[in-house]
């Protein structure tokens, strides 16, 4: 059991992988704990459904979203070893993903605007969405 050796001239140095599995198990427990907290918050939203103000619901969902991003960070940084790579590689992966920030804001705002346009504004017109059609039900049988 000797350490692996590459004969690849492209690679200048190898990250040190001689450490044990302690960190891996630590991250496993971190991910599990974050998931359990998410589930607890999700269950809280379910159990208190209809009793919470819109602001409480929204902020709970935002917290769940932040916990999800934390999980994503640990998976990418430790399990995928991106944290062990050099800065050049990290930046070429992470910087393009910043596009998601605008992508999410723009499209969710668009969806919200669409909903406002659908809604009735004092019943001056009817709220319309697609309904399940009779034909779909008939053809399913």
């Amino acid at each position: 059991m000797s350490a692996q050796h590459f004969e690849n001239p492209e690679i200048t140095f190898h990250p040190d992988h001689s450490g044990g599995t302690k960190k891996i198990w630590k991250i496993f427990w971190v991910l599990s704990a974050l998931t359990i907290i998410e589930l607890a918050l999700g269950y809280f939203l379910y159990a208190k459904h209809g009793q919470l103000g819109a602001a409480t619901v929204l902020s709970t969902k935002v917290v769940i979203g932040i916990l999800t991003l934390a999980k994503a960070y640990y998976i990418v940084s430790v399990f995928m070893h991106l944290g062990d790579e050099i800065r050049n590689l990290i930046m070429t992966i992470v910087v393009p993903l910043v596009l998601f920030v605008w992508f999410i804001i723009a499209f969710l705002a668009d969806g919200n605007s669409w909903k406002n346009l659908r809604n009735t504004r004092g019943k001056s017109r009817t709220y319309q969405t697609e309904e399940v059609s009779k034909e779909a039900v008939e053809s399913h049988k």
Binding site: E10, I11, T12, F13, E85, N88
Partner: peptide
């Protein structure tokens, strides 16, 4: 980065090696 030290003054973009230090 752990205990690995990047060789100081490495010219990543001057050719002959991967600028990302991976295959």
């Amino acid at each position: 980065m752990g205990s690995t030290a990047i060789p100081t003054g490495t010219k990543w973009w001057s050719g002959g090696k991967s600028p990302f230090n991976v295959s």
